[in-house]
Write a protein that binds this DNA or RNA. Structure first.
Length: 128
DNA sequence: CTTTTGACAGCGT
DNA sequence: CACGCTGCCAAAA
């Protein structure tokens, strides 16, 4: 079922609570898979997300507490609305970084598990 | 199979 | 603070 890496990334993003954020690299590290670029690539697809934009994309940002031009403006509104710790127009990563609870860890671990599905692709499994 | 690309990160200059 | 280069890993061409 785990469609793919992107799905896991989106789920982790949805775990982040209001007023908190995670850097792309953090997400990759939590999943213990891929890297910041994969997370970003996955997030780019969040707009589609099966047609549902229920993904709090503004809670997954760059390590420096910002987002690319086109998104910064809109994200800033969300951050302000959620009382996210800001500093000079960008997120104060030191204070806003999300800390997963043990419960969240279990969730994340389960997601990571799904990614490792080395099951048995073998044979003509076109896969992605 | 190889090459290119991408909502990145970190370090050196 | 501004650039430039390297490392990263998966998906798409």
């Amino acid at each position: 079922m785990r469609n793919d890496y992107a799905d896991a990334v989106l789920r982790v993003a949805s775990l982040v609570g209001p007023g908190r954020v995670l850097s792309y690299g953090d997400v990759a590290e939590l999943l213990d898979a891929g890297g910041p670029r994969q997370v970003g690539a996955a997030m780019s697809r969040s707009g589609e997300a099966g047609g549902r934009g229920a993904v709090p994309w503004w809670r997954v940002i760059r390590a420096n507490g910002t987002l690319p031009e086109p998104l910064a403006a809109e994200a800033l509104e969300h951050w302000a609305a959620e009382a996210t710790p800001l500093r000079g127009g960008r997120v104060d990563m030191a204070r806003a970084r999300w800390s997963p609870t043990e419960l969240d860890f279990a969730e994340i671990d389960a997601l990571a598990e799904g990614l490792s599905r080395g099951g048995a692709p073998k044979r003509g499994t076109p896969l992605v």
